Amino acid sequence: MKVHNISTNNSIINTFISELRDISIQKDRLRFRRNIERIGEVLGYELSKSLNYKTSNVSTPLGECSVNLLDDDIVLCSILRAGVPLHNGLLNYFDAADNAFISAYRHHQENPESFDIVVEYLACPNLEGKTLILADPMLATGQSMLATYKALLPFGKPKSLHLVSVIGAQKGVDFISDAFDADTQLWIGTIDKELNSKGYIVPGLGDAGDLAFGEKLQN
């Protein structure tokens, strides 16, 4: 798997990520969601450079203009609920894309430090021959990303697969590097070194879903 870690080069994405992490700034839910959305836009732009294009002619009031336009059928899939702002950022740039949504959550057993990934709701178009962009803002263990992809396989085999995350743990990146094909590409804002015993990224930013949409009751 090819990993594109955007933080290896300085850019404005550093500002957006620092505000997501900052415990005083992240209390503003609107700003938190918007920062994730803006990171989605940056990652979408970088991702777009790797896609396929074809030459088309555009008529202007003064003549004809030749331009290279996107030639991939794209499907955006996000993992609910934290993935919604990231999905919106990608959709701002891939506005003609089809869309898929899936719920995947951690189901803890008696041991709070162990969990299974449970997939419930799923809405998806045909994926056969499409370019699939799978978005999840926090790439912790990598298990949610893999479980989501496996749940999508009955809908067809994508031509290519791109994974998009805001922050990841190195352990999770290593896990999906082994789990996905070599031609899969990961586009990520930054990678943190640690994953704690409960499977949370350190320093990370906390629970992205709660910070974006409010705390949830635990089952």
Rank of each mutant, 00 (worst) to 15 (best):
K2H: 10
V3C: 07
H4M: 01
S7G: 13
T8K: 05
N14K: 15
S18K: 12
D28S: 11
R29W: 01
L30C: 03
R33P: 03
N35Q: 02
I39N: 01
I39Y: 03
E46P: 00
E46R: 08
E46S: 07
S48G: 14
N52R: 11
N57T: 11
L62S: 05
L62R: 05
C65M: 14
N68V: 03
L70K: 06
D71G: 04
I74R: 02
L90V: 02
L90A: 01
A97W: 01
I102W: 00
Y105V: 08
Y105T: 05
H107P: 02
P112V: 06
E113M: 15
E113R: 13
I117Q: 08
Y121F: 15
L122C: 14
C124F: 02
N126K: 04
N126H: 00
G129C: 09
G129V: 06
I133L: 02
P137G: 05
L139P: 09
A140S: 14
T141C: 05
G142P: 09
A147F: 02
A151F: 05
G156N: 06
S160G: 05
S160D: 07
L161Y: 08
I167M: 15
Q170V: 13
G172H: 07
D174P: 11
F175P: 07
S177C: 13
D178V: 02
D178M: 08
D183V: 09
I188N: 13
I188Y: 14
I188T: 10
D192Q: 13
K193P: 09
E194Q: 15
N196W: 14
P203A: 08
G206Q: 07
D207Q: 07
A208V: 11
A208P: 12
G209T: 06
D210H: 12
L211A: 05
L211D: 06
G214Q: 13
E215C: 12
K216G: 09
L217E: 15
Q218P: 09
